[in-house]
Amino acid sequence: MARFKKKKEEGSQTINTASLPDIIFMLLFFFMVSTTMRETQLLVQVTQPKATEVQKLEKKELVSYIYIGPPPKGRQAMLGTEPRIQLNDSYAETSEVQQFIAREREAMSEGERKLMTTSLKVDKDTKMGIVSDVKQELRHANALKINYNTRKRVEDRN
């Protein structure tokens, strides 16, 4: 076994870290620019299905989100495993969807209301029953532009 030679002791050597803050700041600015703030705390588990024919949703301020999925693992003992609807930061019933849309619409400027899109983030194992109920409510609330949120699947067939 070779032994490493001991260095001659001549005070502790330091690496010059003066440029470290610059590097970190660059990283920081990159993340500040390329990400958006998380707006809601998810109270339901959502694993989106995958699809190939997806379009990007532009203008996030015109999009309202409706989440549907089972409550998270830790709270299933209390809340059960049935899929629930989440609007903003709390669980809601189907009947509250219309109010929610009205409030979201109120927050938008006159000209933008036509362009309002509702994005449905639904867990892939949810049954269509609850989704259809929400869709019916959206029709009655006149929020007709909807988007089924999906992840992109790379085409493997053909």
Partner: peptide, 30 residues
């Protein structure tokens, strides 16, 4: 560097990067 790291970690935690994609459809009017 420590201050910058703190800020960086704060932004990493509080922001998301996912782009919203999906199938856009129009519902029929009521």
């Amino acid at each position: 560097a420590d201050i910058a790291f703190l800020l960086l970690i704060f932004f990493l935690v509080t922001t998301t990067m996912d782009v919203d994609r999906g199938i856009t459809r129009k519902l029929p009017p009521p």
